[in-house]
């Protein structure tokens, strides 16, 4: 019989406490190497869509704020198209990157993204997913990056029929991945462990 012959994925390791040196060097005062930190500007004046701010903090299992994390987000444009070569449905808004990166601040652990509200995108079986933003979190103490999603609280109907949210067996946990809204600001706190632990994904 032939060998299946696939390679194994390179195993993950923690990003460690000095992740900023590599991913956000200007944030940790290594200036002059890169003009600016990647992923800090997702939109410009021409970007189509409703401007929103997404912000929050990350908490560990003792309720302490995680101040040394890096958060990345990935989302569709306002028409529900991804700015990616694997997007086969059409061309996304070229003035919107769809991807952002932000370190949590050393003082208070807050991360912030200035972005737009994403449109809806399809699920594999033809249903439509509710608007969402994909999150990826790395930090000291996290051996493999954590994936989750943020949903929008005003999208009640869409959320109630979202294929991923419907998969959450313990219904009280759905609330852990729906942001809190105040005007155009959405607060999305992430709890790594314990009571109200955020739903994390194996995707």
């Amino acid at each position: 019989m032939q060998e299946l012959g696939y390679l194994k994925e390179t195993p993950s390791q923690t990003a460690g406490p000095y992740v900023h040196i590599g991913l956000t060097p200007n944030f940790c005062d290594i200036t002059g190497v890169y003009q600016s930190d990647l992923g800090t500007e997702m939109v410009n004046d021409k970007t189509v869509g409703e401007r929103i701010t997404v912000t929050g903090r990350i908490f560990d299992g003792a309720g302490a704020i995680v101040r040394d994390a890096v958060v990345e987000i990935w989302q569709a444009d306002s028409a529900g198209l991804y700015n990616s070569p694997s997007e086969m449905r059409g061309a996304a808004d070229p003035t919107f990157t769809g991807w952002g990166r932000c370190a949590t601040r050393a003082e208070d652990g807050i991360y912030t993204f200035e972005t737009i509200k994403p449109g809806r995108v399809p699920f594999k079986d033809g249903r439509t997913m509710a608007p969402h933003i994909s999150f990826w979190i790395v930090a000291r103490g996290i051996n493999i990056g954590l994936h989750t999603r943020m949903y929008f609280p005003e999208e009640t109907d869409a959320n109630n029929s979202d294929p991923l949210l419907l998969r959450i067996e313990h219904r009280e946990r759905v609330a852990t991945i729906v942001a809190a809204r105040n005007g155009s600001t959405y607060t999305f706190d992430i709890r790594l462990q314990g009571d109200k632990e955020t739903v994390f994904l194996d995707i």
Binding site: L164, L192, Q193
Partner: peptide, 11 residues
């Protein structure tokens, strides 16, 4: 203190 205790949701 930085490891989730619940199972990941597979998709």
């Amino acid at each position: 203190l930085r490891s989730p205790q619940r199972a990941l949701l597979s998709l």
